[in-house]
């Protein structure tokens, strides 16, 4: 599939970083869901039992939080929302029906990707603060019970919303062929770039011409 002529989209460090976030997220989702719903309690077996699941989850959470923060700093500039993004949202049905030609021009990231970026960032802050407040035995005892109850609720809700966002993210990566390569090899084909991120493609080719 790949080609010498492909465009570099992510550096090695950026991809490594992305996969740290991805792996910690999967671990957190599995350990969290294990405690969230009785029908998924068997997932605790993957972590060495209930006690270990409970112990490991918040520490993995801290790793994910720090990684997301660094990722946020790395990519925030590309994820600033502009007028075209707002228009893009209205053309979402066209995007879903593969009628890219009708979409407002897309830069390095489309509006959908920006939504995923920002929901992850906001979600991580909510999960961190609520997670700290409910964290036994270190922090929870110093907070009033009412606040702990509220934190558990916030934690569960933001976790589920984040999981929904990530399901969409994973599906988009599977659906749009050639995207996975960006996170595996760091490169994308020219046709991919032209089709899905024409403005970015123009930028890149102009750079090349200089």
């Amino acid at each position: 599939m790949s080609n010498k002529d492909d465009i570099r989209r992510y550096k090695d460090g950026e991809r490594l970083h992305h996969w740290i976030v991805a792996v910690t997220f999967i671990l957190l989702a599995m350990s969290g869901l294990a405690l969230f719903h009785p029908s998924l309690y068997w997932l605790t077996n993957l972590f060495g039992g209930g006690q270990w699941t409970r112990i490991l989850h918040p520490f993995i959470g801290l790793v994910m939080f720090v990684s997301v923060m660094v990722l946020m700093v790395r990519f925030w500039r590309h994820n600033l929302v502009n007028r075209d993004d707002l228009r893009w949202i209205r053309y979402l049905p066209d995007a879903l029906h593969k009628r890219e030609g009708r979409l407002p021009p897309v830069g390095r990231y489309n509006a959908g990707q920006k939504i995923i970026y920002w929901s992850t960032v906001i979600g991580m802050f909510l999960l961190l603060f609520s997670g700290l407040i409910m964290w036994q035995p270190y922090f929870a005892p110093v907070f009033p019970i009412g606040l702990v109850r509220f934190a558990i609720l916030v934690h569960a809700f933001s976790a589920i919303l984040l999981m929904m966002v990530i399901i969409l993210h994973i599906y988009a990566a599977i659906w749009v062929k050639g995207s996975l390569q960006a996170m595996v090899k760091g490169t994308v084909s020219r046709t991919w770039a032209k089709k899905h991120h024409p403005l970015w493609y123009r930028e890149v080719t102009q750079e090349e011409r200089k």
Binding site: N3, K98, I160, I167, Y171, W175, K177, T205, R209
Partner: peptide, 29 residues
């Protein structure tokens, strides 16, 4: 969560993968 995963799958089997067609002149700039 289950509905969203299912909806994604249905979208896939309805519309198929989103492939960027290779241009014949891909390597040239």
């Amino acid at each position: 969560l289950a509905l969203l995963a299912m909806a994604s799958f249905l979208h896939f089997i309805k519309h198929g993968p989103n492939v960027a067609e290779e241009d014949d002149d891909a390597p040239s700039r």
